[in-house]
Write a protein that binds this DNA or RNA. Structure first.
Lengths: 140, 140
DNA sequence: GTATATGCAAAGCATTTGCATTAAA
DNA sequence: TTTAATGCAAATGCTTTGCATATAC
């Protein structure tokens, strides 16, 4: 899926590559990653202790602007950041603990917004959010 | 769609009916309402000046717990509250100004999560979010 | 050398909470 | 009379910002 690694794509965008940015990008590499800013900080600091939360937010926001990372707000908690922007990726979230998974629902092609409901919008994206209870959080 | 008005349903739930709660419920009545807590406060105060923001939040949270109102977090801004929980209602949001519309997409029946992607979750809901640019916000 | 990223600490919002007061039932 | 809702103000959690310093290019 991810043909060119994130770091290589960033290098190609003549993006000033600092140690902090490198470790943040490394942490954000890979699939099925849905970290919060705090979690990114924690993991980045394991590799490079001198990283600040402000830099994590700055960097994540830039990656979002570049289209390399997608922010996912699913019910209340802090924003999670998803580096998997290439495939049509949707999400399954636990209503209790916020656990988040990438899913690839079937039948998306058939999902259309009737023209009468465009309200003059230019529609550019569809996101499907499945909600439920994960195996830890049981069945309230 | 809304066969029994919100206020009548609340009365039936032996919910202590204060003037504040009444005006908040009145403000939340009707379709295609997607107000933020601040907007609810503003409108409620037009009818009853002695309403506080804390009470608006308390009351909205209760309405959410009762299943009478649904919170909608669509990209960044403050939570919007949608009293239209009965029909399968989905949303179209403007990526720039946050303008939010109720929509009723076609082909939802065909939208399924493959069993291999349930991850042990009990899936209870699907929400579809269409994103785009409204006629005011043009085409960046 | 110059432009830009960093870290810190402070500020900004949205939301929740503790607690004394008030009011619904 | 009892139990619960209100309002205020302070606290919280997440995120952004201003500014002096450090550093990639």
């Amino acid at each position: 899926m991810t043909s060119v690694p994130l770091l290589d794509r960033l290098r190609a965008l003549d993006w000033r590559l600092t140690p902090q940015r490198r470790v943040i990008a490394e942490v954000m590499g890979g699939d099925h990653v849905h970290l919060t800013a705090e979690e990114v900080l924690e993991r980045a600091r394991q590799r490079l202790p001198e990283v600040s939360l402000a830099t994590v937010y700055n960097t994540l926001n830039e990656l979002v602007s570049m289209g390399e990372v997608q922010p996912v707000d699913a019910g209340g908690g802090p924003t999670r950041y998803d580096p998997n922007t290439k495939d049509g990726h949707h999400h399954l979230v636990c209503l209790v603990c916020g656990d988040l998974r990438d899913v690839h629902p079937e039948g998306l092609e058939a999902l259309e917004l009737p023209r009468s409901e465009h309200f003059g919008f230019r529609v550019v994206n569809r996101e499907v959010l499945f909600q439920g209870y994960c195996s830890n959080c049981g069945r309230p």
